[in-house]
Computed example of a mutant assay.
Amino acid sequence: MKGSFFKRITLFLLTNLAVVAALGIVARLLGVESFLARQGVGLNLPALLIMSAVMGFAGSIISLLISKPMAKWSTGAHVIDTPRTEAERWLVGTVQRLAQDAGIGMPEVAVYDSPDMNAFATGAFRNSALVAVSTGLLHGMERDEVKAVLGHEVAHVANGDMITLSLLQGVLNTFVIFLSRVVGFLVDRFLNRSEDGEESAGTGPGYFLTSMVLQIVFGIGASLIVAWFSRRREFRADVGGAQLVDPNAMARALNRLRMQQGEPSLLPSSMRAFGIRGEGMMALFASHPPLEQRIQRLVDGSWRN
């Protein structure tokens, strides 16, 4: 629910960057960017914006469409077509009931081999998503806590978090590509002038080098926005899990994460039990809010506000 979600978001972002980079290379090989920087006229801003939007949204949409197969491949998740054990039957039945309560289509249900207690949900469409749990979670937690985790993941699907993330990433990609090219053009115009005084910019090495470096720098800045968005949506998924199942079970599940990491429990002894894995990332780049905040919201009831 946390570590796996972080890995999934990282995989999504890396795929997005790879697609955008590939499209940028193709555009340069085809001479598109040279056409946009017309010598003696200046930078064709409307055309550049259109190209940036096409490249930016293509990267995020392709990443979204392949998110399910990439998640299965990266975790080795096995989709349960026909439940073979009582635990698998319970798992599929629970996801089915939660999906009905949330008003979404039945997701694919998968299990992947990992001792860590974790789960994730992904997919391009609300009615054909994927919900996967680790063997550590399925066999190491009580049923009501596992159900709370599943409610959290189903809430991610019902809230359309991956779709919204992709749209946000597409917008950010657009501005990253656009601004990096504009600044690259200005730098190249300053560095590269023809002997007769006529500006010749947008075709020299200064343009390509500057735009490449700035695309990385601006991309890092964009990742901060994506991380902030992810933290907000995680709170919403906690609310969804609390509404679909039980806020106390959700809090106990999160508390187990802290104890799994060797941190002290934040709950009274009567509530100390189970968890979902967390991560120690720098605050600004963290895809999840601190576990302390998430648990506190569930315990004091502020999640209802």
Rank of each mutant, 00 (worst) to 15 (best):
A119V: 10
F120C: 05
A121F: 02
A121R: 08
S128V: 00
V131H: 05
A132Q: 04
V133T: 07
S134N: 02
T135V: 06
L138Y: 01
H139N: 06
G140A: 06
G140I: 08
M141Y: 08
E142D: 14
D144T: 13
L150H: 10
G151V: 09
H152Y: 04
V154N: 11
H156K: 12
V157F: 07
A158M: 06
G160N: 09
M162E: 06
M162A: 15
L167P: 02
Q169F: 03
Q169Y: 05
G170I: 00
V171T: 07
V171Q: 03
L172Q: 06
L172K: 01
I177Q: 09
F178Y: 13
F178I: 03
L179T: 09
V183I: 14
G184E: 03
V187E: 03
V187D: 01
D188G: 08
D188V: 05
F190K: 08
R193G: 01
E195G: 07
E198K: 00
G202H: 10
T203Q: 13
T203Y: 01
G204L: 05
G206T: 02
F208C: 10
T210G: 13
T210W: 05
V213G: 06
I216V: 15
I216R: 14
V217H: 12
F218S: 13
F218T: 10
S223Y: 03
L224M: 13
L224F: 07
L224N: 07
V226Q: 05
A227P: 01
R232G: 09
F235Q: 03
R236M: 14
G240Y: 01
D246F: 11
N248F: 04
Q261W: 01
Q261L: 13
G262N: 05
P264L: 09
S265P: 03
